[in-house]
Every structure is written in C-alpha cells, then in structure tokens.
Design a protein around this nucleic acid. Structure first.
Length: 448
RNA sequence: CGGGGCGUAGCGCAGUCUGGUAGCGCAUCUGGUUUGGGACCAGAGGGUCGCAAGUUCGAAUCUUGCCGCCCCGACCA
C-alpha cells in the first residue's frame, strides 16, 4: 500500500480522553476513532489488525473442530423471555422496538439464539458432539465503558457453543476449546494464562479465564511462575485425542484472579514461584450444563431412545479487546510494536526523497518485489521529511522497515530496521529484500 | 447510579475568578528557501466559545436547565 493512496490519520499529540497507552496509541496511530462512549470506528489500519486477529481465532476454532456460522446482531426478545433472561439481564442489554412495536434487542451474547437453532435441527445424539461459533459484534450497555476498546460497549467477540450428550463428553469439548485458546493467543504473540474462574451455580472446575499479563490490566492475578512460559501445544495436536493431560498440566498449577484468589493455597507454592501481577481477560470458557437446554427444551434422543437435554458450554474471545491487549503487551515510547502475525503490514518502506528518480525507482522496485514475495508493505512515498517519516513508521509499529535514500543508493545500500529491538543494518538492496522476506516468512511460520 | 473533572479551530491548550465582542503552539493551504531523525521565512484559511433560556447596554466569562466526554467505584469478552 502506498501511503499517498492510503488513509492514515496519525496524531502527533496524545488526545486528552485517552488514559492508558493502548488507547492513546490506537488513536494516535490511526487505528480507531471514537464515535461515542464505548463505541468506535475502525480506521483502515485498525481494521487490518482486527481482521488478522479474527482470522487467527477462526483458524484455531476450525482446527479444534468448531464450525463457523453467523447469527444476527439484532434478536427478538421472545427467545430471551423463554430462557428467562429478558428480565434478568438488566440495563446492560440494549432494548429496542421495531416499527410494529415488537420488542427487539441488540445481542449481548447468543446462547438463546444458538440453542434455538440447535433444537430446531438436531434430534439425535448421533449428531453430537457439536460446536458452533460465530464472530460477531455484541453490544453491552456497560455501566462505565473505558480504556478504549478494552471495555467498549460495542465489541467484536468470537463466541462458540458446544453441545454434548453427557458431562464427560462436555468436558472433552471444553478441553478442545481450552487447548485452542492456548494456541490462539500464543500465535498472536501473547502469553495468556488460563485461570480458575467462578463457574457459577454449576460449580466444579469447568470455567477458566484467559489472562494476558499487563501492568494496566483490570484485574489483579496470582499464579505460579511456571505458567508464564509453558510451551504451547503444537499445530500437530490431535484434537480428537486425549487433551486432558495438556489441560491438567496447566490447571494443576495455581492461577487465579482476584475474585477466586485463595491466599492460603497461594502460600503453599514455593515463594520463588509465586507471582502476582495484573492482567487483561481476553477469553473466557464456561461449562453451564443444561441451563438453556432445560429452559428452551433443546433435547436429543439418546441411545436408549429417550430425550435428554444437551450439555452445553460457551467459549468467548474478545476479538476487539485483543487489539488493546496486544498494544499493552507490545509497545514502547515511540509507538506500537506489532508481532508479525497481527501487524497491519509486515514491513514499511521509507523513501527518504520522494521525487528523486533514483530513490523512486529503487523503492518502486523493492515494493513490487516484496509484495510479490507475499510481504505486505506500507510504502511511505510521501514528500514528508525524514524525521516525520521515521516517527510515523515507529508509531505505526511495523515489524520491519527498509529505509532508502539517494545517499545510500549511490552505493547500492539501504537500511533495514527491526522494530522489536531497534536493530538496524546497512545492506545491499538484494540482501535487504532477502532479509526482510525470509524474516517475515519465518515469523509468520511460527504462527501456524 | 454515587464521587470527581472537563467541554474554546482538526489536535493540545490559555482566556472564565475580576463581563467589553476570541488567542497561543502544532496541523492545514499558498509562495519561497531547505531536505538522511519531527525544518525555516512570509502570507492565508478555519470558531454560532457543547446546547438552551435568563441577567446585562454588552456574556466564552455571571445564573438556571439540559447534553456530551473522561477519571475513581459496583459490572464484564
């Protein structure tokens, strides 16, 4: 993408409404603009990141055997009356009426709708297990939206719903999502730790929040140090096999958010392994049994021919929130530092002297070669001054940048910079292209 | 909803206490000089001072009401 043909409104100064760094940078780097409290427009650069996050989530859901569909944002109140939640949900649910005065609502979640779809079409235990998901905008009229997209009212969420015949099978479905989440967050360059969460009236140990450690996190968390750098299950993981050992390895170590924290238990682990930090909740998985299948009569015929209500679980990932979490985890004073798999572009190309024939020619050539090699490039072909270009590129935070100007090109040299650590080196054009192309490929491969 | 703060040019702010018809920096536009880490000179455009009502000869400034936004708390992907 040529910058002269793109829409990238960056801000030199920090907008006063933004308190935390991810919110500030998202506004400054031209990723989002606020529409009203807790509601944001996604600018071209932000949308690119959002789509990449979404795609990684999608790939890992598919890998784990979940099947994608898409449910609407607007739902009828009737289903919610059936489950009893129309009255229970409270002011957080945005209620609207259509022209016929029918009660509608902007979906804050989709248990009712998915249960309705399921019960209308599935009759036999032979169709189980089943896990259906979608990635759709939600609206929750939060008491207090804040921190930009970290707690928006409108947000993009992946929510999956599993259906099983009995609790053992439900646990297997739960484990699949558990492992899928480990991979999902790791692929984005995030260290997310599963922590025991309140499992509500069902009880048991089948509810976990996935927490990204960050100083600005909303909740205090306590865990065993070993959880932080535990190896991530590989792409060759057999999701139809026994995943219990992978789950046990993690749930066996202490990890809890403030609400679930048991100081006595925490004190039992070696002091050197005790870790207390702050974290951002980016995912939540939940087994809730027959809460909705009972209320909405979602039953299947078991092997004995008798109808039984299905065992259900739901599994959420905050897709838009993840963008905030990613910036919280990867930034410096100058701007964002995107991990390659979620970077809006893989590389930047700075033409230090747009209008100079040699610089224009060399840059156009490099741009074409990078794009042909599958590297997404943001080519700064504007006539701006060098300092401004560098500052913009650092703010945007692409993993690699090639800097080309007449002075270096006279000797056939360009500069290659890595955003992660600021490392830079002078290379020939060919070597620079090789370096960036192979590095980007390597970084993307790690993400699979 | 309770507590606090803010609303003046695209962004960041001053001016409000003490009423006199709106200003600074950055950004934008024009011309020129520059050009390898956020340039310089000259000029220009851009505001119903959040909205409404009131007080007053006169309101960004005082009064009342409303709206919006941010921060702390309860809630959550």
């Amino acid at each position: 993408m040529r910058l002269t043909r793109f829409f990238l409104p960056v801000l030199k100064e920090t907008p006063s409404e933004a308190e935390i760094v991810s919110h500030q940078l998202m506004l400054r780097a031209g990723l989002i603009r606020q529409a009203s409290a807790g509601i944001y427009s996604w600018l071209p650069l932000g949308l690119r990141v959002l789509k990449k996050i979404e795609q990684i989530v999608r790939e890992e859901q598919n890998r784990a055997g979940a099947v994608e569909l898409l449910m609407p944002t607007i739902q009828s109140a009737d289903l919610w009356r059936e489950s009893g939640r129309y009255d229970d949900y409270g002011a957080e649910m945005l209620r609207i009426a259509d022209r016929h005065e029918r009660d509608m609502l902007f979906g804050p979640t989709n248990e009712e709708l998915i249960t309705d779809i399921f019960r209308k079409s599935v009759r036999s235990y032979k169709d189980l297990p089943m896990n259906l998901y979608h990635i759709q905008w939600k609206f929750r009229d939060e008491i207090r939206p804040r921190f930009g997209v970290m707690r928006g009212r409108e947000f993009l969420m992946k929510d999956a719903y599993s259906f099983d015949l009995d609790k053992d099978a439900a646990r297997k479905s739960y484990n699949k999502m558990f492992v899928a989440y480990l991979r999902t967050f790791a692929r984005m360059g995030l260290k997310a730790i599963p922590m025991r969460a309140d499992s509500g009236p069902i009880g048991g140990d089948m509810s976990h929040e996935f927490i990204v450690l960050a100083e600005t996190g909303e909740s205090a968390v306590f865990c065993h140090k070993d959880l932080v750098d535990m190896a991530v299950p590989g792409a060759d993981t057999d999701f139809d096999g026994d995943l219990q050992p992978i789950v046990d390895e993690r749930t066996g170590l202490y990890a809890a958010t403030e609400e679930m924290h048991q100081p006595e238990d925490f004190a039992k682990i070696p002091e050197a392994a005790q870790m207390s930090a702050r974290g951002i909740e980016v995912g939540h998985i939940f087994y809730f049994g027959t809460k909705y299948s009972d209320a909405m009569k979602a039953v299947v015929a078991g092997p004995d021919g008798k109808d039984v209500p299905v065992e259900m679980g739901s599994y959420g990932v905050g897709v838009s929130r993840l963008m905030g979490a990613l910036i919280e985890a990867h930034h410096d004073e100058a701007g964002c530092k995107w991990p390659t798999p979620v970077a809006p572009f893989h590389a930047g190309l700075i033409n230090l002297k747009a209008g100079d024939d040699a610089a224009d020619g060399a840059c156009a050539d490099m741009y074409a070669k990078l794009e042909a090699a599958g590297v997404e490039v943001l080519y700064d072909d504007t006539p701006a001054r060098a300092g401004e270009k560098f500052a913009t590129m650092e703010l945007v935070g692409l993993p690699w940048t090639i800097v080309a100007g007449p002075r270096g090109l006279k000797n056939g040299l360009v500069e290659v910079k890595r955003r992660a650590d600021g490392a830079k080196e002078e290379l020939s054009i060919e070597a620079a292209l090789d370096k960036v192309i192979s590095a980007v490929r390597e970084e993307l491969k790690l993400a699979l």
